[in-house]
Amino acid sequence: MSGFNKVVTSYEEAMRGLENGMTIIAGGFGLCGIPEGLINQIKTMGTKQLMVVSNNCGVDGFGLGLLLEDKQIKKMVSSYVGENALFEQQLLNGELEVELTPQGTLAEKMRAGGAGIPAFYTATGYGTPVGEGKEVKTFNGRPYILEESITGDFAIVKAWKVDTYGNCVYRHTAQNFNPMAATAGKITVVEAEEIVEAGQLSPSEIHTPGIYVNRVIKGSFEKRIERRVTAKEA
């Protein structure tokens, strides 16, 4: 049964095999639900020329923004970027390339990539700069563009609880892109708040079945909040 035990005990082990020029698919929305320790490990490794597929690129000094400091990212595929000054600077300098992708198309590119579907048609982006140069096909009188799916050499995922077999549960809106990212990596690494023994999570509550997961590590998370907004006291 130990063949199903995915737990690793060091970040070195968790990200072993990551090389220059690889593609990483990362879960998270803004700073919510990001694998903080795995990102830190990529920074420590100093791997360069990376293509990173993630809805956003963190902020200055936190999350994926950390990988900009030593110019580790060559290309970002994201729906919304530029929350950080370094990103803007590297983009304007031509040191960083960005492929802006509609958020739903990005989620579907990961989902389809992980599901073995190489491309799909969507109405999103038709007639806009996103649709330029893409095949158009009409279904029931409406034009759709062909979008190609994405897979990664690595997927880095943040879960709330994971069991030793890699079955994952996410918490609240920290779920976001993580389940799709988990399916789309050749090597999928899950960093979780808590690791439990197989059997301790109900099979019905699993969001990501362990079959998609190669390595599991227990992390500790700062969980920085990007925009703390509270109700005015009555």
Binding site: S79, Y80, E83, L91, L100, P102, T124, G125
Partner: peptide
């Protein structure tokens, strides 16, 4: 500076 379309196109 272009920050992106987020979910608007969808």
């Amino acid at each position: 500076l272009i920050k992106g379309m987020g979910g608007a196109m969808d």
